[in-house]
Nucleic acid binder design. Sequence first.
DNA 1: TGTGGCACTGCACAGCTGTGCAGTTGCCGC
DNA 2: GCGGCAACTGCACAGCTGTGCAGTGCCACA
Lengths: 339, 339
Amino acid sequence: MTRRFVSAADVARRAGVSRSAVSRAFTPGAQVSEAARKRIQEAAEDLGYRVNRLARTLHQQRSDLVGVVGGNLVNPYISAQLEALSAGLQRRGLQCLLLNSGGGGDLAALLDYRVRSVVLLSGAAPDELVRLCARNGARMVLIGRPAPPEGTSADLILADSAAGGRLAARRLIAAGCRNVAVVQSASRTSAKVDRADAFCTEMQAAGVTFTRWAEGPNSYDTGCSAARVLLAQPGIDGIFGVTDELALGVLNTARSEMGRDVPRSLSVIGFDDAPVSAWASHGLTTIRQSLSQLTEATLDAVERGPSSVPRTVRLPVTLVERCSVSPRGAAAPLRPEAG
Amino acid sequence: MTRRFVSAADVARRAGVSRSAVSRAFTPGAQVSEAARKRIQEAAEDLGYRVNRLARTLHQQRSDLVGVVGGNLVNPYISAQLEALSAGLQRRGLQCLLLNSGGGGDLAALLDYRVRSVVLLSGAAPDELVRLCARNGARMVLIGRPAPPEGTSADLILADSAAGGRLAARRLIAAGCRNVAVVQSASRTSAKVDRADAFCTEMQAAGVTFTRWAEGPNSYDTGCSAARVLLAQPGIDGIFGVTDELALGVLNTARSEMGRDVPRSLSVIGFDDAPVSAWASHGLTTIRQSLSQLTEATLDAVERGPSSVPRTVRLPVTLVERCSVSPRGAAAPLRPEAG
DNA sequence: TGTGGCACTGCACAGCTGTGCAGTTGCCGC
DNA sequence: GCGGCAACTGCACAGCTGTGCAGTGCCACA
């Protein structure tokens, strides 16, 4: 015995008015007599009526639904982003239609619900989705991803990855590291690649030996595997994980499995400043991209909507000192450049 | 210049058929000639058409939207739940409308979208929401929460909290603890209260001294504060955090701030088995509620839908041994009961 | 009393889809 | 050639809302 949803017609019958009056009673600024409005609201309260946003959207051609795509929701930084974003959206009267890109579902399914924009927190933007959004006039908001291939318009929100990579490199150099590694995952997300590239460029300029590790998914376990291999033979004295999750895997494995004393015999630095990184058990020195700035920029983009001209926002990053990197100038100075 | 969404009429025009034919081409099992179907699908592909699920839902009185309410998405166990649930939903062709209960928004807003059911991952079920769901024939699925007050129907999915609390108690007793504490938050969620209650009952029966801590939100920081206070004077040799997040706060603070050697001079045990708890940096012994069983039961409830008779599922819990509790029988035996 | 203005109300349509029903077309058998 | 049948196809309506437009009743004013 499935009960149907209460409709405006039900309320109208009960309040003894026309259905239009009910609609007007729930539309701010519409013309209804005070008496009618009161009667209608009582009837609605009794019946448990709520305006059908599906029908309203259908009529108004303007949706309050925002599609949010995020894979790997367990990743501490992604989940922090989702927490802030979803709260911000509903504070503005928007709803968050979540799609887990790791679930194997079809991203384009979001468009079936006429979302006003699609926010991509992780994963690459498939060409198909980009095309569909363009066709249907839905705006895409890409966070930390490269611009879509064609001349398609999208709002871009980027942390300054290159600057972050350089910051990490300079910090390790200041710590006296002479043989470093950068750990990224096999995923070629442009933000992560940019971080690693800038790091390596800086290291090269300073004449420091470096190696790159790029295998497996972006996860804690990948960081663990990397540490096992990289630290098997001696030599490496500094590691940059392009993600806090990777860096934490490295850090913990180095300490508990590989017997390294961090930061005395090994410096580790991350990127993101996820909440867990601040826990006393880790104390990870890392590059912070401000979550609140990121969220604010995203919300702005969503609120401006599909009819506005798309913008690109580049957010600054900062170094957060904790205790996984040797103090500046504490170790032996760099070997002078050969030649 | 906002572009409108492509409608079935657009496709019909382009393919030279009626709008009904388009609808049928996208309805499995409907009657269309192969030639027409092909032409329609090509036109749809060209235009980037996708069926409007809002209108379809309006017509069919049957929604594919599932409301998911979760506060504190940063909590590692909650985010793991959300990850599994969202993936499972879309594998079944359902969509996940996320509402962050910490965002201050109106939970009832979910009903505006005619969700078929509302899943509550955290927070209490407000009476208002319960009433509205009942009125509108939407099913509620409560995870680890007490049954709603009135005779309202809801699917209940519960881990066996009491059994878990007893398990934790017996493990600490076996470790030789004589003076223990249970750390919960100020939130009186029934699941958490049940865990603590069962723990205390078991301790009382065994004649072990215990204290209860119940302040602040359910967070890592609350665990830290509790540890600072509880461990300030000597005596306590075992702590049960009713949530892994709390237990991890306790564990880390005990080790790094209070100079305790866990598990030698202090045993810590948690509840949930969140992913971070397994990290080498923590090695938290904990009570596991199987995430996959929980998710499976939730998905079943959602899929059965509002017209089925509601069920209550109680899931078993197990002890996961890691290294935050002394080995069994390792310490001094329990002081014999006085009298 | 007649008239204009005002506040309110209801009708009817648009927005997009799914589907029952009736109509059309083509084909086959006699 | 003609009836019958099957396969399609299109019309029209339902599902729920918001809103332009016309209509109603009332009051004030000349």
